[in-house]
């Protein structure tokens, strides 16, 4: 067994929280740059240039890319040879989030759902654990903004709905969301599993690098086709009208019950922030 002390987890996550909110990934910078070349609307091109400026200012001035520094979502992959010592791993993750949000001058955005009173330290984090092979501990931090999360949905279609039914659900959702989730977006789709699993794999889908090809050729074909349809909607950057409404559609799928067809869509805004660390 390899021992990892909770203090190590706290420090690593604290740094990750701050960095992920300030530095937009290279895949997103490249995708926005490419989008400028494809966008037909002059206003849309101007918006895309501003978004790249914004990313550069954030990195240089060490200021968050977006004021919505999100609900703290943490994906943890823990090798089964790892033994966490010094405390509870969940407490360590929440402490890392607490310290990162305070020390990074990030916005505290968690609240009581009934009274709406702010919790004050952006905890609790939404943590998803997965046990994997090996002796490493990997954490992926995703500060997920409310604007794009609010436009996300999960549903249970009938098996008779088929691929066309799934496609209609996804594209209608993006159309109805319009300008609200800060386009150009990344559309994460989860198909199959159960209601909660579909939502989870949809969220995981937004983490795949933008510009990468789905290793499953069937899903890769659907992704290309649906992206093309979405970019005919005319919503454009910030919803002002234009060609580039989404930068990517990412699909994850898994087997489901013979009676069901669960579908979830997780919409990610252009401030697509996520970063990982391996201990």
């Amino acid at each position: 067994m390899r021992e990892i002390h909770v203090d190590h987890i706290i420090d690593a996550l604290r740094s990750l929280v701050i960095k992920a909110n300030i530095e937009l990934g290279d895949d997103m910078l490249n995708a926005l740059q490419d989008a400028i070349n494809r966008e037909e609307s002059p206003t849309g091109r101007e918006v895309l240039k501003n978004l790249l400026d914004n990313a550069n200012i954030a990195r240089q001035d060490r200021i968050p890319i977006c004021q919505d520094t999100g609900l703290a979502v943490v994906f943890v992959e823990i090798g089964q040879e790892v033994h966490v010592i010094g405390g509870l791993i969940k407490d360590a993750i929440n402490e890392g989030v607490r310290q990162g949000y305070k020390d990074g001058y990030l916005r505290m955005s968690t609240c009581n759902p009934f009274t709406r009173k702010n919790i004050g330290d952006n905890t609790p984090a939404v943590i998803h654990f997965d046990i994997v092979r090996g002796d490493k501990l990997k954490m992926t931090f995703v500060p997920k903004g409310g604007g794009s999360e609010n436009m996300s949905r999960a549903t249970m279609l009938t098996p008779a709905s088929g691929i066309d039914g799934i496609k209609k659900f996804v594209i209608d959702l993006v159309d109805r969301a319009g300008p609200n989730p800060c386009p150009p977006t990344i559309v994460g789709v989860g198909i199959g599993g159960s209601i909660e699993k579909a939502a989870l794999i949809a969220k995981k889908a937004i983490l795949r690098p933008v510009g990468s090809i789905n290793p499953d050729p069937f899903l890769a074909r659907l992704e290309a086709e649906w992206l093309d349809d979405i970019n005919r909607l005319g919503i454009g950057p910030e919803g002002f009208g234009g060609r580039v409404t989404s930068l990517a559609v990412h699909i994850n799928s898994m087997p489901c019950h013979i009676a069901s067809l669960p579908v979830a869509v997780n919409i990610q805004c252009h401030a697509s922030r996520h970063m990982e660390v391996e201990l």
Binding site: V47, N50, L51, D53, N54, A55, I57, A58, D61, I63, P64, I65, C66, Q67, D68, G145, G147, G178, P179, N180, C182, E238, G239, F240, C269, H270, A271
Partner: peptide
């Protein structure tokens, strides 16, 4: 702000003479 408004807001804008602007969503650093 950013994003669509309800018909009630759009009607109030017309009736009482106001305006709704969008700023660039997700460009808080800029």
């Amino acid at each position: 702000g950013k994003g669509r408004r309800s018909n009630a807001v759009k009607d109030a804008i017309k009736r009482y003479k106001a305006v709704y602007f969008a700023a660039l969503g997700g460009a808080g650093a800029l």
